[in-house]
């Protein structure tokens, strides 16, 4: 018995000593920044992850005292678990989060904020906007309006169009409502709108069916570049590329390249940059390290990308 007690005391000493050695070798970080984003499940989130990784490497090189923990989640409840881990295990000082869903993550992010962490929310705002300390986002309804204005001017306020929507989410609603509000008083007729789930295959099939159904289409609003790629392929198959043009959205390099080439089928694109995660990470780092005033909202505009300015938005190394 006595022997056993001695042994356990000895083991304890070894553990404590081992821990001290380990702890001393760990570089001490002044500040830890947690970044939580959705996993790369489609083109846009792929771009998001690419820019997040790249920004993490750059910032950590630039500021040795900064540690960045980047986690990706494939659904809302996984992301809520991630937040708990960031808080308890990594003891983050600031959080940059692109919430999977606004409503589901409002509670979990509030918990993080209550424990004194600086919270930056990206793109999808929480249901309670008082939670975030800083908000970085693209402007979805402006994206819809910019697209509508271009189509309006090209069609001279009059013509038949079809719309391919994303998925039934807040982002899609805002784009759609922004678009529709800009064409109310015009002669532009929306023949139909269907969900294409932000992917190429559905863009292709939905457009094929629109093409069989409507003998005359003047323009297509695809609102996403992945959908647009499928749409273009369907239009080519039907050999109707001289009849209409396609307006996508996002800023995918393949589409920007077509715009740059002066392709008649895709004359423009509307920016909705996944690189907004870099903006959020950079500014939050400044807040952490320099304690400069970073507050309120930072809304990126959605400019129209044309043949003339396409060079400024072309990133050949990005996966998006």
């Amino acid at each position: 018995m006595e022997h056993r007690v001695k042994l356990s005391a000895r083991l304890e000493q070894i553990f404590v000593f081992g821990f001290l050695v380990w702890a001393l070798q760990m570089p001490s970080f002044a500040q830890t920044l947690g970044v939580s984003v959705p996993a790369a499940t489609h083109g846009w989130t792929g771009g998001l992850n690419f820019h997040a990784e790249e920004t993490k490497d750059r910032l950590e090189n630039q500021y040795p005292e900064l540690k960045i923990v980047l986690v990706t989640a494939s659904n809302a409840s996984e992301q809520a678990n991630d937040l708990e881990d960031l808080l308890t295990i990594h003891q983050i000082d600031a959080l940059v989060i692109l919430p999977f869903e606004s409503a589901a993550l409002t509670g979990p992010v509030r918990n993080v904020e209550r424990s004194g962490v600086f919270v930056t929310v990206v793109d999808r705002g929480l249901t309670d906007p008082s939670i975030h300390d800083f908000y970085v986002a693209g402007n979805n309804s402006e994206m819809g309006r910019v697209s509508a204005n271009y189509i309006k001017s090209r069609l001279d306020q009059d013509g038949k169009i079809v719309i391919l929507r994303g998925m039934p989410t807040v982002i899609d609603e805002q784009r759609f409502d922004g678009f529709m509000s800009s064409i109310v008083d015009t002669g532009i007729e929306v023949l139909d709108s269907q969900y294409a789930n932000w992917n190429r295959d559905d863009g292709f099939t939905v457009m094929q069916d629109f093409l069989s159904r409507f003998p005359k289409i003047d323009a297509v609003w695809a609102q996403d570049d992945d959908i647009a790629i499928g749409v273009i392929q369907a239009i080519r198959q039907a050999r109707r590329q001289d009849e209409m043009f396609v307006v996508g959205g996002g800023g995918m390099k393949d589409i920007i390249q077509r715009v740059k080439r002066g392709d008649k089928l895709t004359p423009v694109d509307v920016l909705y940059p996944p690189a907004m995660i870099s903006t959020a990470m950079e500014l939050t780092t400044i807040k952490l390290l320099a304690d400069a005033p970073i507050e309120g909202e930072y809304i990126l505009s959605s400019p129209l990308i044309t043949e003339q300015n396409a060079d400024d938005y072309y990133f050949p190394d990005s996966p998006f």
Binding site: A39, A40, T41, G43, G46, N49, F50, R200, P319
Partner: peptide, 11 residues
């Protein structure tokens, strides 16, 4: 496949 495509699309 997601890894091979870097989260984006292989063309």
């Amino acid at each position: 496949v997601t890894f091979m495509a870097d989260g984006g699309t292989l063309s």
